[in-house]
Structure formats: structure tokens, C-alpha cells
Design a protein around this nucleic acid. Sequence first.
DNA 1: GTACACCAGGTTGCATGCAAGATTAGCGCA
DNA 2: TGCGCTAATCTTGCATGCAACCTGGTGTAC
Lengths: 228, 228
Amino acid sequence: MQPGVREDRAINTSTVAQDPATLSDEVYRSLRSSIVKGEHRPNARLIEAELAERLQVSRTPIRDGLLRLASDGLVLSRRRGWVVREHTPEEISEIYGVRLALEGYAARLAAKVGDDEALAHIASVHHRGSDDVSRDARERLVDYNDLFHDAIVEAAGNRRLADLIRQNREYYFNYRIAALYSDEEASLSIAGHDELVRTLLARDGNAAEQAAREHVGEALTVILAKVR
Amino acid sequence: MQPGVREDRAINTSTVAQDPATLSDEVYRSLRSSIVKGEHRPNARLIEAELAERLQVSRTPIRDGLLRLASDGLVLSRRRGWVVREHTPEEISEIYGVRLALEGYAARLAAKVGDDEALAHIASVHHRGSDDVSRDARERLVDYNDLFHDAIVEAAGNRRLADLIRQNREYYFNYRIAALYSDEEASLSIAGHDELVRTLLARDGNAAEQAAREHVGEALTVILAKVR
DNA sequence: GTACACCAGGTTGCATGCAAGATTAGCGCA
DNA sequence: TGCGCTAATCTTGCATGCAACCTGGTGTAC
């Protein structure tokens, strides 16, 4: 392939390209998605040349993407060779600790400063989503969960907080993990959302933070049980 | 310069190199330090070729370093050209919101699960540091502040939380900002640490989280007043 | 049979070349 | 004099080549 010549590539470019999306950008999203969906399993080696071949780009954008993934903590650059990061139960607990702090605070903010419209949107997402999920595939659960937490974070109105939460979300609730949820556990999780929505609509910041923290704590318990 | 041949470079390699530190790594630290210390001012353009010339490396490790800095949020890749990120008062408030959530939670954890030794270490850092600072240069304030908050985060025992807090610290309290502090404001900040240490030693998690949040809130007030 | 050294293959770190696109400056025209 | 258009320059995005280093395997000595 000639430098500078844009051609069709084996990368899914369906994601909304904000700027003139670079190849590095697309590789980053593509790899992240592969990892989160479990196509690259933890501890799997990632060979730059192999990925370059598969995605039909040179090693440069692959390297850029891997560097960003390493910043996110999704891959690891061992002495020589990229590896999909495996998380020990301790690390999972730590990740959930961070999530607890961030999402708890986001819930508090949403209750305090979210406008009525934003709060109504949260409730609406919750009701639509929780119906869907209870009778549908596990994959939907992730999408609903993302939408729900996005709505809260949106209402909180702190963009940086939103970025951090979103960046971290892939760790603690992705497709790979969702597949492990039983129906009862999914229902329990949704029940936690119920309580959270209630406190938000009541605009009780303390209670909302508390509810969010408990919700996260319960999720951690479920996941730790699966991991062992 | 020949590929693969290691020579002396214009990069400060005094930092403890953990692994066989790569050039990219060194460039990253060097650039970050320059930005945080104000040698590259906000909105300044960063030219890859120029940096490569100055640090006596090729553009590749420069690009790697810039990518990592972009992940951290310290630089920005506009359409064509890297720029040191400038933060609006709104963004500063947002950053402090995140800090509030993270450091508050770290304080709560430290009070709850920190072992006696770790808590004693916090108190010791505080007493030594706060003496030093009150009669010494502003630059020391940053170093003391870092040590103090590191000690708390250490006691909290969550490595990921620690990484996030450290990664974000450069935004909200770096050398550039510290230079703006008056003596009174520095003292006020230290007074906030006093209260925090008290609650930690009392092992009162709620109070510690509360104290940390108030401390962060006060810092935000000071800084917003400076920025305007 | 075990341990050590050496050799070959694989994979990355870094340097560099090229072209596209952005930026800037200069020029002509209103 | 001000504004828009065009050409030249600047800067990056990407591809690619090379050498070092890591890894794994084989052979030899004890």
C-alpha cells in the first residue's frame, strides 16, 4: 500500500467520525472493541505485524492504538510483546473502588444540579431499558447499562467525570462479563437502578450517592463470585 | 544517528528507570515535566521535528510521548499540530470535581483500612512538611503536597485509585499554579491538612471524606480567583 | 540426566521518507 | 485600503527498513 493513499480498509468505520478520523483512531476503537467483546482473551499476545495484516494498515497506526490502549490499561507492554491485560480479583476490586467513588459522586451531582429534563430522561431510559432486558439477550443488558449510566453522568454535567467513568466502564461491565450474569443477577442489578432513580427524582444527593455506591458494591460481589 | 544505537541524549534520565526504559518513556516524562513546570505555556504549539531536534531523538518517540500526553489530557492534537492544553475556569472546576470524588474516597478508605503505620506516616509527612513550607519557597509546597497526598493514597491501598489521582494531580496543583499562592493561602491549605490528619487518626471515615472534600473545595476557590 | 551456552527465529524500538492536508504569505482586484 | 484567491511552505499521518533484544530450542559438557 502506498503512503498517503486512502483505500477501503478492514476496519469498521461505522462509528461517527468526529474529525477527519485518523487510521490510528480507527485502529484504537477496533482493537478496544475486540478486547472488550472477548475476541482477544486476557493474556493473549498481540503481534503488531499480525494486527497490521488483519486490519490492512501498517504497523504505525497499530502501535499508536496499542499505546492508547495501554494508557487505558487494557493492554500491557511486557518486555517485548503486547498482552491483553488480565485482572486479578484484587485489581477488579480496586477498579470497582474507583467506580464507586466516581459514580457515587456523579449521582450526587445529578441529584443536586441536574435539570428536570435530564432526570426525566434517566427515568425514561431506565423504564424502557429494564423492560427490554428482562426478556432479551444478555448483550442488551450492557447497552442498557451504558445508556443508563451515561444519562446520570450527563445530568451531573461534568464532562471530565463523564470521560473518566466511560473510560473505566469497559473494565467493570463489558460484554464478556455480562455473559456471566444469571437472570436473577440481572434483575437484582436493575432493582438497584430502581432505587437510584427514586433518590434522584427526590433530589436527595446523599441518598443518591449512597444508592449508587451500594449498587456498585453489589455488582462487585456478583463478579468476584464469577471470577473465582 | 543510527537506528538502534544507544547514545547519550539530551533527556534527563535521572528518574529511576524501572524496566529498560524506552526513549518514548523518557520523552514522555521529559515533556510532561516541561509542561507542568510551565516551560511550555498553555496554547503553545509543539512541533514534533523541533522537539526531536532538541531532545536528540527521532520523531517516533516524540509522537509516542505526545500520544500519551494526549491521553492524560495535557496536550491536544488539533487538526494538524499539537497544542499544550489550556483549561477554562469551567474545566478547572470539573477537574476539581473529579479530584473531590477521588481524594474524598481515598481519605475514607485510608481512615477505614489504612494500617497504623501508614497513618502515622501521613502525620509525620504532614508535620515535617508543613514546617518546611511555611518559611520556604513556593516550589517546596508542591513537593510537600504531593508527598502528603501520596501518603494518604498509599494508606488507602488502592493502586488504581492512586494512579488516577496521581495522573490528575498535575492539572490541579502543579508548579505553575503553586507560584500563584500567597503565604496566607498556603497556610490555609495546610490548615485543611491539619483537620484531615485529625479525622484520619480518629479513623472516622465519614469525617475524613468530608474534610478532604472541603479541602479540595477551598483549593478550587483559591485557584478560580487567580484564574479570573 | 541436568545445566549451561550458543544459535536461530521472531518481535519490537527507533529512524526516516513521502505525500496529503493545513497554514501562511503574497498578490491581484474591488 | 481591505478582501479573497492562489501558491509555497510547514507539519503531520502513515509506511517501511534496520538492528537490538527476547525467546525457544538444540547441542555439549559434566
